[in-house]
C-alpha cells in the first residue's frame, strides 16, 4: 500500500473537549502510537459511536482502490476489492491548510482537512507530513481495534 498518505493507530484521549455541542457529531481528541501525532477529528458518532480510551486505526488515502487509481464512479465498486472493505467508517474530504508552529527542532506541522464540514486537524513532526498537499482530496478510513 504505497499510495497511503498516512497510517497509524490512535488512542482516543477525550471526546468533545469543548463540551458537547451537537447531537450527531462529536469531536475526538486522540494521539497516535507510532508517530505520536496529535489529532482532532469530528466524527458522526450517531452512526459510528466512539468512546474515550478506544483504539482506532486511521488511514488517509487518496483513493479507495488498491492500485491507487482514482475512484471514478460509485457503481463499479461492487465486486471489486477495495480498501473500503476493511474499514468501518469512511469519509471523503479535502486538505485545505498546512501551517507550522514553533521553530527549529520543535517545529510542528498542522494539517487541516475538512470532510464536508467535519474538521480534522493533525499535528506532528514535519517528516510525517511530507506527502500532504493543500487542495488534495482524500479518504479518511477508520477501524476500531479491540
Amino acid at each position: 500500500m504505497a499510495g497511503l498518505l498516512f497510517n497509524d493507530i490512535f488512542k482516543v484521549k477525550c471526546v468533545n473537549p469543548d463540551g458537547k455541542k451537537y447531537d450527531k457529531v462529536s469531536r475526538i481528541e486522540a494521539r497516535s502510537e507510532k508517530l505520536s501525532m496529535y489529532m482532532l477529528l469530528d466524527v458522526n458518532t450517531e452512526i459510528y459511536p466512539i468512546d474515550e480510551g478506544e483504539k482506532i486505526l486511521m488511514v488517509l488515502s487518496p483513493s479507495l482502490n488498491y492500485d491507487g487509481s482514482p475512484v471514478t464512479s460509485y457503481s463499479d465498486q461492487e465486486g471489486k476489492k477495495s480498501l473500503a472493505d476493511k474499514f468501518e467508517y469512511i469519509m471523503h474530504g479535502k486538505i485545505y491548510k498546512l501551517s507550522d508552529e514553533g521553530s527549529g527542532s520543535d517545529l510542528k506541522v498542522e494539517v487541516y482537512a475538512s470532510f464536508g464540514g467535519l474538521q480534522m486537524m493533525l499535528k506532528g513532526d514535519p517528516i510525517h507530513c511530507a506527502k500532504f498537499r493543500v487542495d488534495q482530496n482524500m479518504f479518511l478510513l477508520l477501524r476500531k481495534l479491540t
Binding site: 452512526i47 474499514f87 468501518e88 471523503h92 470532510f115 464536508g116 464540514g117
Partner: peptide, 16 residues
Amino acid sequence: PTPALIKPIELWTGKQ
C-alpha cells in the same frame, strides 16, 4: 459532490 460520509452509509452534509 462526493458524499462526505461513505461508509457505513452514504451521507452528505449541509455544508456540501
